[in-house]
């Protein structure tokens, strides 16, 4: 547990000493709130916010693969899981802040989306590809719904897409990504 605490402290220092994560959260917050105000639809701003938050979730891990920073991180935590856990713990409140002004469940949703990004980054490691895959899950599945002529298929696809309305589905996506990502992170060689 002391490892986890040390990792959390280290990750907190990492997060606050470069502008990436604070900037992303600020962008998500401003974007979500302004779209909400402009359209009067609380769910519209969330579409923008979730994209930013998902990418922030990817960035916090995959960004380390791009800069090579993953090496010192892995040297500091050779068991690897404390670093992943610390990143996850840091992301959740950061994501939830974005939903200020939305319903409380939207905060939960954004937390899950951030973790979906993190899990995907652990699985795919290339930052752009991981972000593209997460954004595909978030945005492409819903656009496919209207092409589905069969109502059963359309309903299935709709229910299978992560959305603020389906926290359970979203949690399933996140859990799958985190599980596969963690296994990959723990077993594969570091870039």
């Amino acid at each position: 547990m002391t490892d986890a605490a040390a990792a959390l402290r280290a990750e907190w220092t990492k997060a606050r000493t470069v502008p990436d994560l604070p900037l992303a959260i600020l962008l998500a917050l401003v974007g979500t709130t302004s779209v909400n105000v402009l359209t009067g639809q609380p769910s519209a701003g969330l579409q923008l916010g979730q994209a930013v938050i998902a990418v922030a979730g990817v960035q916090i891990l995959a960004g380390e693969y791009s800069t090579g920073l993953i090496h010192p991180t892995m040297l500091a935590f050779p068991t690897r899981w404390p670093a992943l856990l610390a990143k996850a713990v840091l992301l959740i409140p950061g994501a939830a802040v974005t939903a200020i002004g939305n319903r409380p469940r939207d905060a939960v949703y954004l937390g899950l989306i951030a973790l979906l990004g993190l899990g995907t980054a652990a699985l795919i490691r290339n930052a752009v590809t991981a972000a593209g895959v997460v954004l595909t899950v978030l945005f492409v599945l819903p656009t496919m719904v209207r092409w589905m002529p069969d109502p059963d298929w359309a309903t299935f696809l709709y229910r299978a897409s992560p959305s603020p309305g389906h926290l359970a589905t979203t949690a399933a996506w996140t859990a799958a990504a985190l599980l596969l990502g963690t296994i990959t992170l723990l077993t594969r060689r570091v870039s």
């Binding site: 579409q47 923008l48 994209a51 930013v52 990418v55 990817v58 960035q59 995959a62 960004g63 791009s66 930052a127 752009v128 972000a131 593209g132 954004l135 945005f139 492409v140 656009t143």
Partner: peptide, 15 residues
């Protein structure tokens, strides 16, 4: 940088 670029591209087109 790749991440802001892909994010912005998606925000401008797909979203």
């Amino acid at each position: 940088r790749g991440l802001p670029a892909i994010l912005l591209a998606v925000l401008l087109t797909v979203v």
